[in-house]
């Protein structure tokens, strides 16, 4: 029993909390089976306290997987680390998307606005500006931003129409009924576009039937908060813990319906990550990342 306690303590100091808890439970079982130890209430209580403490630490860790607000220096590092393209414009966009994916929304917003001002991949930059506003729960800010673009010259009419239908769809999915101003007139100016914006379709929401976990057999529909190529991020309410438990990393999601502003397509996806949000209005909720499998055929529905 002494060696079991020693092991349990060592695992605890190593941060191997599950392993530590298992050992303490073994110790408790041994005590309960052995009459000689049963009278030692003090020892039993110490072990029980340890188990409760470990359970509390494990629960805290579950809640600690948030993206904290990082220093400017670290944000710069993230931006550089996650910019892989040789093409300068694409690399800058990747850096900004990485910031958003790690929950650095304020900084990401500044980066997307700067890219938009420079005319770098304006359609992607503009949509990401709106996504940042929406992630910060600033629906009004997103709508105001769209109005500003309408009266400016940063974006072509064609791009504005695309952005309008994107925003309209996202707001509708959020249950927000608002009449967005129309884009009037034909596109006469050449957009200040640099590089190609070809890539994955913008996905606004997804619908899928879950094949495992506590929600097995049920069909769920969720909104997309962020997208980087074929990786989409979704926010799930903390109240839906069962749903989170149904999305363990690595799980393959078959026949997912991906809704974009121009079409609906069906493809497979893989759950790549989930984290919880600690700050802001969505504190306590979860962010799920799903990778759309490019190797499979995408069925346009």
């Amino acid at each position: 029993m002494k060696s079991l306690v020693k092991e349990a303590e060592l695992y605890r100091t190593q941060g191997l909390l599950e392993e530590s808890k298992e050992r303490y439970l073994e110790v408790l079982q041994l005590i309960e089976k052995n009459q000689r130890f049963q009278s030692n209430k003090k020892a039993i209580n110490v072990i029980k306290d340890r188990i409760v403490g470990l359970e509390r630490d494990l629960a805290e860790i579950d809640q600690e997987t948030e993206a904290p607000e990082l220093s400017g220096k670290v944000q710069d590092l993230i931006k550089n680390l996650f910019s892989f393209s040789q093409n300068k414009d694409a690399a800058e966009m990747e850096g900004a998307v990485a910031l958003a994916r790690f929950g650095q929304y304020e900084r990401a917003l500044a980066e997307f606005n700067s890219l938009l001002d420079k005319g770098t991949l304006p359609l992607i930059a503009a949509k990401n500006v709106l996504r940042c506003h929406l992630a910060l729960s600033s629906t009004d800010a997103a709508i105001d931003q769209f109005r500003k673009w309408l009266s400016g010259e940063l974006l072509s009419k064609k791009q504005l129409r695309d952005i309008r239908s994107f925003l309209e769809y996202v707001l509708k999915r959020k249950g927000i009924q608002t009449k967005l101003p129309e884009v009037v007139g034909e596109s006469s100016q050449k957009p200040k576009e640099v590089g190609s914006e070809g890539g994955f379709l913008d996905v606004c929401s997804v619908k899928m039937r879950l094949e495992s976990g506590p929600c097995k057999g049920s069909t769920k529909e969720l909104d997309v908060t962020f997208q980087s190529g074929n990786v989409i991020s979704l926010i799930v309410s903390a109240k839906d813990k069962d749903l989170i438990d149904s999305f363990m990393p690595g799980i393959r999601l078959r026949g997912v319906h991906f809704f974009s502003s121009i079409c609906v397509f069906r493809a497979n996806g893989i759950v790549s990550e989930w984290t919880s949000i600690k700050t802001g209005p969505r504190r306590g909720d979860y962010v799920l990342s799903i990778t759309i499998d490019r190797s499979d055929k995408l069925d346009i529905l």
Partner: peptide
């Protein structure tokens, strides 16, 4: 930790060499 799969993929991008640190503890 298993849950940070996509972060690991991102950090691994463009890697030139890897040190795999295995845990000698039997429980791992």
């Amino acid at each position: 930790q298993v849950r940070y799969s996509s972060t690991r993929k991102m950090v691994l991008k463009g890697v030139d060499g890897v040190v795999f640190v295995a845990d000698s503890l039997e429980v791992r």
